[in-house]
Design a protein around this nucleic acid. Structure first.
Lengths: 158, 158
DNA sequence: AGGCGGTGCTGAATGGAATTCGGTCGTTTC
DNA sequence: GAAACGACCGAATTCCATTCAGCACCGCCT
């Protein structure tokens, strides 16, 4: 991907509502050129969408946790993501290397709600769970860095 | 927080660029009333900001990992988040309960870049690391559920 | 060399949205 | 019961998104 597109992506990652006018100013292009590029980035799937960043405490979901899951029957087909998709408390599902097969990130209202959720997870996907409760979140959703091309180098000088 | 605000937050979490006109239609309020509420939600910090959701593969950061860190010297002051903040590959930092003290979510370009990053993390925060590599991500950034007030009930009927 | 198609840009036009403002209504408070 | 407050609406204005026609550049083919 090219320099200007990278810059646009970085800017939008930082502020998803930035206007095309501002993007044009930042990139030195005309408004319509930027518009064209953003549309293309969206169509290509580089920009997947836009979201408001919410304070989960403020909306009644103050408890965040990571739940690692492991199938109880290793021979069974592994369709945990689909089996768990209906649980809206699950914000993300990552397949991972290591002892466990998936790591889920969940948001719930209370310890009781977490307990309920864990039961639902175990029942829905036939897995055992290991839960790591988040105590606080110093930062999250940090946008990708300003833009830095890897710079192919033959010598070892940085 | 109130019903309509909750609904607005949900809608914006799902589509951060939704127009006030559409929000007004969805909530049954006038455009200016919605505008007023959104501004207030932003000011209160319920809506912290807006971000484009980026395909990290497409921008050259195809490798995601969770890095759990543990201080080497448990007596030293715990300022790992600040010590690590300059590493832009770190997307999130959560303080967690359990054996380790923080879980970091990182995005890098390659296994080599991950190796470099881990060294920098260890050196910057004087910690040991345990890394879980993400193989794939069935879903991520799922917006919070449509809105459901806990509904205090005396009877046991759901 | 000349012509062709594709790509990416610009600037102008228009339609729609964001933002502001004045005014109304209902509720709370003294 | 009147003032103060909070939330709403509708209209006016400004700004932005989106589209379009036209231009420049490049690679390619003949």
């Amino acid at each position: 991907m090219e320099e200007i597109d990278r810059r646009i992506v970085t800017l939008l990652a930082r502020d998803g509502r930035m206007s095309f006018t501002d993007l044009a100013r930042e990139t030195g292009l005309s408004v319509s050129a930027v518009h064209q590029r953003v549309r293309r980035l969206e169509k290509r799937g580089v920009v997947r969408g836009y979201a408001a960043i919410i304070d989960h405490e403020a909306v009644g979901l103050p408890l965040t946790a990571f739940v690692s899951i492991k199938p109880i029957d290793p021979a069974a087909p592994d369709d945990a993501p689909e089996r768990l998709a209906h649980l809206t408390a699950i914000e993300a599902c990552h397949s991972v290397a290591g002892d466990e097969s998936y790591i889920l990130k969940v948001r719930v209202a209370s310890p009781t709600a977490l307990e309920d959720l864990l039961q639902q997870i175990r029942a829905s996907a036939n897995v055992s769970t290991r839960t790591t409760v988040v105590l606080s979140t110093p930062y999250e959703h940090r946008a990708l860095e300003p833009y830095a091309e890897p710079e192919v180098r033959q010598d070892g000088i940085a």
